[in-house]
């Protein structure tokens, strides 16, 4: 499990990094926290000609909480999110979901940009991006562009990112005070990839849910919102019966993968259960 040979560069600007990626003609890869890329290299499942290490680029680890939303740099680590004084209030769902990411050592190195670029369907950060209507900021050889999270995650390990593009950050819209939310995840051990996870949030207006969001990770090929479940929730009072109904809608909508850890039927049922429980938690029923 020794790494294959590759060239290595530490650019000091985004422009320089993008130029290196472009020159690599598809065989150069950015290196951020390395918590996925390094094992892939060790297993020799990938053999890039050049690793473009982003650690020398200033500013990518910034967290800015503003009126319009929260902007997080691509090299913000999980431990930065956990330790940040303002994020728990500004983006409570983000903090809750990131609490499920891996283990202490990995959280010290893993970054949100790396996780989103890798796009594991069971990963939490892509789920946060989708559940919170995040917008990803990309920079490539052809310039900068913003892509909504819902258009970014296309399938297992597949995104809208071009080979010469970098994720430089993500903006999550402002989270209004009093928004109700819940997140439930189930993994075989704490910190493992989720067999399924469901995030729910809505604003409560006159005792009814407005702006319903129900998003699934794990039991799917890419994190996504479940329109049928959101339609049930929108405009309704949150009750146990509704939570069960939303759970059934989520279960009916997902097409989970099957692997050595769980059958598709199990994951489907689990997604429904977790949706029901997440909504119950959001509604203060649990």
């Amino acid at each position: 499990m020794k790494l294959p040979a590759f060239d290595y560069a530490t650019p000091t600007s985004i422009g320089e990094a993008v130029a290196l990626l472009a020159a690599g003609d598809g065989s150069a890869r950015p290196l951020s926290g390395g918590q996925t890329l390094m094992p892939l290299l060790a297993f020799r499942l990938t053999a890039p000609s050049l690793l473009v290490d982003l650690r020398g680029i200033p500013g990518l680890d910034a967290v800015e909480i503003g009126e319009a939303g929260t902007r997080l740099g691509a090299r913000v680590r999980w431990c930065d999110i956990e330790a940040h004084a303002g994020l728990a209030a500004a983006q409570p769902l983000l903090v809750a979901m990131i609490g499920h990411v891996a283990h202490y050592q990995i959280r010290k190195r893993g970054t949100l940009g790396g996780s989103m670029a890798h796009a594991d369907p069971a990963a939490e950060m892509p789920g946060v991006a989708v559940a919170c209507d995040g917008v990803l900021h990309l920079v490539g050889a052809g310039g900068a562009r913003d892509v909504a999270a819902r258009d970014f995650f296309l399938g297992p390990l597949t995104t809208a990112l071009a080979a010469d593009e970098l994720i430089v950050g993500i903006t999550l819209p402002a989270w209004p005070h009093g928004r109700r939310w819940g997140f439930q995840e189930f993994a075989r051990r704490r910190g493992d990839f989720a067999l399924a996870g469901v995030a729910v949030h809505y604003d409560e207006v006159g005792g009814r849910a407005v702006g319903a969001h129900v998003a699934v990770i794990g039991a799917c090929s890419a994190p996504h919102r479940v329109a049928a479940a959101e339609a049930l929730l929108e405009g309704s009072a949150v009750t146990s019966a509704l939570a069960a109904e939303v759970g059934r809608a989520v279960a009916a909508s997902v097409s989970p993968p099957e692997d050595i850890h769980a059958t598709a039927a199990y994951r489907r049922s689990l997604a429904g259960t977790l949706a029901e429980r997440a909504l119950a938690a959001a509604g203060g029923l649990a």
Partner: peptide
């Protein structure tokens, strides 16, 4: 007794 297997038995 994996969760998936046990759940199937319970179902």
């Amino acid at each position: 007794l994996s969760p998936s297997r046990l759940w199937a038995m319970i179902e």
